[in-house]
């Protein structure tokens, strides 16, 4: 018998011994897609909150005048700037798509495992698709 069995033993209100369910040990438990999409929503949310600084710095550069704005544009156009913008776009579209998934849940739709897994893949596909579409369009318009 495993020592951990002791942690899983409990009693019901009428005194019967039962095996309690154990919460998943994150280092050995393979997270289902629904769990991965859930924690990703939180991670992209925090990243986007930090990334809003990017939006505000762009607006402040525009307010500061042509020289500051040219510097901001030059940074956004650099490799590091583009990498940050690409990551920001991907996080934004992921949070956007998964946010709509959450709103559907709030309205009472899509709770069964099969649907939740399918909409999870749709969210990932939608985020990658929208990101690539936005960047291809951007580069096409830049010429």
């Amino acid at each position: 018998m495993d020592a951990r069995e002791a942690l899983m033993t409990g009693t019901t209100s009428d005194g019967k011994l039962v095996r309690r369910p154990l919460s998943p040990h994150l280092q050995v438990y393979k997270l289902p897609l629904t769990a991965i999409t859930s924690i990703s929503h939180r991670i992209t949310g925090v990243a986007l909150a930090i990334g809003t600084g990017l939006l505000v710095s762009w607006l402040m550069a525009a307010a500061a005048g042509p020289i500051a704005f040219a510097e901001a544009q030059a940074f956004m156009g650099s490799f590091l700037g583009r990498l940050m913008l690409f990551g920001w776009t991907l996080a934004l579209f992921y949070h956007f798509c998964n946010g709509i998934r959450h709103l559907a849940w709030d309205a009472g739709y899509g709770y069964d495992m099969e649907t939740a897994t399918r909409t999870g893949w749709l969210t990932i596909g939608g985020a990658v698709g929208l990101t690539l579409f936005a960047w291809i369009l951007g580069y096409a318009l830049l010429g």
């Binding site: 042509p66 544009q73 936005a134 830049l142």
Partner: peptide, 22 residues
């Protein structure tokens, strides 16, 4: 939802634009 779509579309259209245009 609509504000984000509008903003991303606008930023794409403004890509590389100078200060006066923006």
């Amino acid at each position: 939802v609509p504000l984000t779509l509008w903003f991303v579309a606008s930023v794409i259209l403004l890509a590389g634009a100078d200060h006066a245009t923006v």
